[in-house]
């Protein structure tokens, strides 16, 4: 491998990107829609643009927001046991830890299942709205999109849904459980979010932000 050439001799004025996982330099790919650019060394997906991806992601994000509102405000699960009845909303599940020492855990659960997913949705809508309309990006778009990316692992709505399923089995022998509309809204939210995250091409969005911000 020759490393004695300067970067200018090697690459001229062409824009370069490095693979985030192995640091291998690539000349910025011009990827046609519905194709993928993979890192030559480790195979990481560098770019995966799709036709109309931005419109689709924006539509999915707006749908998710509506489902999120429904999920928080409608009854989530209700329980019947020996003539007793108890209803639970997502807020009640969040507040389950709110007594004494465990109060910070309430906040953590609220963040993971409601607040962070909601913040990501807002940040994505804020970033993509002008992109879809063909306008200049909003002033904080780069910060907002960076935040949405950084928060991604901490958004745990889908894990919560599996948790609900486990809880259902755990009390199944003792009581009858009924799933309310909010549960189905929440399941819908999880499904829509998975589609949204897989059809979004980060590379295309960052490149658009660079072109229109500077």
């Amino acid at each position: 491998m020759k490393t004695n050439m300067t970067w200018q001799e090697r690459f001229g004025d062409r824009a370069l990107i490095a693979c985030p996982t192995c640091d291998t330099v690539h000349v910025e790919p011009d990827v046609p829609d519905n194709h993928q650019a993979l890192c030559c060394r480790c195979g990481h997906v560098l770019a995966a643009p799709r036709e109309n991806a931005q419109v689709r992601v924006l539509a999915l994000a707006v749908t998710s927001s509506i489902l999120m509102i429904a999920a928080v405000f409608f009854p989530f699960i209700s329980l019947d046991a020996g003539g007793l009845h108890n209803k639970t909303s997502i807020m009640d599940a969040v507040l389950a830890f709110s007594t004494g020492l465990m109060a910070p855990l309430s906040l953590a659960v609220a963040l993971m299942i409601v607040l962070i997913p909601a913040a990501r949705l807002l940040a994505i809508i804020y970033t993509l709205w002008p992109m879809v309309r063909g306008d200049r990006p909003f002033p904080l778009a780069r910060k907002a999109f960076g935040l949405a990316e950084r928060l991604r692992p901490w958004s745990m709505a889908e894990i919560f849904v599996v948790g609900v399923a486990v809880a259902l089995v755990k009390v199944a022998g003792l009581a009858t459980l009924n799933l309310g509309p909010a549960f189905w809204a929440f399941v819908g939210l999880v499904v829509v979010t998975v589609f949204q995250d897989t059809s979004m091409c980060r590379y295309t969005i960052w490149k658009w932000l660079e072109k229109t911000t500077n």
């Binding site: 699960i77 329980l79 046991a81 020996g82 007793l84 108890n86 639970t88 009640d92 599940a93 969040v94 507040l95 389950a96 830890f97 855990l105 659960v109 993971m112 299942i113 692992p153 901490w154 745990m156 894990i159 919560f160 599996v162 948790g163 609900v164 486990v166 809880a167 755990k170 009390v171 003792l174 009581a175 459980l177």
Partner: peptide, 23 residues
Amino acid sequence: RWSMIDVFVVAILSALVQLGTVA
């Protein structure tokens, strides 16, 4: 991240199973 399942199960059960002296 999937390790969080059990904590969420505890949160749901604690919110749901509040039946006074019964359980």
